[in-house]
Design a protein around this nucleic acid. Structure first.
Lengths: 252, 252
DNA sequence: ATGTTCAAATTATTATATCATTATATGAAA
DNA sequence: TTTCATATAATGATATAATAATTTGAACAT
């Protein structure tokens, strides 16, 4: 048994088996991160180093590192000069964890779409307020790209999705961006490649209008348009009739 | 080296070291979950069983289980009849992962508050639409509890926070609830125990008004009130002057 | 000097064996 | 029926060793 200098001030996490040595190490690193002792890129050390530091076996360190890695706190590299380092933010783990939780909790498509409305509505609103010139240029490029592939459903859907992402990115809010990415990953299977010609034209029209609002910094209009846009997508998702689809309400 | 019957159809996750045997096991379990082969509560087996099934060592299985556990996919119990089971949804893991990502990405308090507006605004809106009789009763109870401890800042803050949570819960949207819990965990350190008497009275008034809107199913009013409510909290958070605080703009 | 190749050092990955700890299940006694 | 002791089964942890992957750096050729 090793001396891991644990603080028992832990809270709100994993009630069971929280006092295992491996978890104590996880907690220490986690708290060191939150207390500002670590920054992305900082080296924690190799398994051997850490085993010596904590006075535990390498296996125990490994358990802790595996957990920290999955939490996105550290990155591990093999080879000389390798070892465990504090990670840069990596949203992939997070998105995946989100998808898993939604799956396990049995969250419905309806609930996810409501969530999407919350995120993208606010995203559009803040985009109108905070957009930079670079944001406008990127949005313009994406609009033109979508225009050029308007006859190719798959390509248009892809360009449309990137337009939505670019809108949220223009908000400058990384929390929103993270959520949007995560949600898109969850929603993605449902609404891929459904855009026929007339549908695409309608979507493109709405996107152009949205761009105009964002450029004019009309945040309320941008929000409202985005919400209506998503609401119509939802309507189609739930009725699912060919008529609705033909009405051009869906985009990407 | 074991035969793990891996499918190489993996995507969108952990680009580095994704082909380790341990990760292949993780992938298999994850995909089995998403393909509906597993349900919460299902037994995966003990470490020994799994080591035999996959024809790998116990250490490798352990690595995989540690990852799956951190992702919230499985729960592990010690002792006879224990082993690894598919988890019920556990949002604590997710909340923690979110907090970590925000920390690593350097997300500011401002960004988190904007996010909170998105979540709680939509939460209030949907609460007005979907609230059940039970929701109304719980909200009423919380209002009365807050009233009874209005002179105790810490208790009132606590009751107020639970009121906010109950509002989001009344939306019936588990995705929103998960986000709210996660955000609350991130924000929590900042705005605890600041409610003086006059501030508490103002907050209580707003909460009662919010309840009225939710009861009357006036979703737009509920959303607007919630957003204003949070906006004033934000204003205080950023100015931070004693005057603003005394203006009674902050609640919990 | 500069770029390339190759060997050595470093590190994680996997494996096997063993003991300790913990939780469940079983069964006997009250 | 409850309670308590015991057996059993599982993870937790340690030790040791072989293997694979990666980087470093030196030797080499250009």
């Amino acid at each position: 048994m090793g001396n891991t200098e644990l603080k028992k001030t832990n809270q709100s996490w994993s009630p069971v088996r929280a006092n295992s040595v491996a978890n104590q190490i996880v907690m220490q690193v986690r708290e060191a991160l939150f207390s500002g002792k670590f920054q992305p890129g900082d080296l924690l050390g190799s398994e051997k180093d850490l085993a010596a530091q904590f006075d535990v076996s390498r296996i125990t360190v490994r358990d802790a590192l595996r957990t920290l890695e999955t939490m996105g706190i550290i990155e591990i590299r093999v080879g000389a000069g390798g070892g465990a380092r504090i990670a840069e933010g990596n949203l992939d783990y997070f998105s995946d964890a989100l998808a898993v939780q939604f799956k396990l909790a049995g969250v419905t498509e309806r609930e996810i779409l409501d969530m999407q409305v919350a995120i993208e509505g606010t995203g559009a609103e803040l985009a109108a307020l905070n957009r930079s010139r670079e944001n406008l240029e990127e949005l313009t490029e994406l609009l033109e790209e979508a225009e050029s592939v308007i006859d190719s459903p798959a390509d248009f859907t892809d360009a449309g999705q990137r337009f939505h992402l670019a809108v949220v990115e223009a908000s400058g809010n990384r929390a929103l961006i993270a959520q949007f990415r995560a949600l898109r990953y969850v929603v993605w299977p449902q609404n891929a490649q459904r855009a026929k010609r007339e549908i695409a034209e309608n979507a493109q029209k709405i996107h152009r209008q949205l761009f105009a609002f964002i450029e004019a910094q009309d945040s309320e209009a941008a929000r409202k348009l985005m919400i209506d846009h998503l609401a119509s997508i939802r309507a189609v998702s739930f009725s699912g009739t060919a008529e609705d689809t033909a009405n051009g309400l869906i985009c990407c």
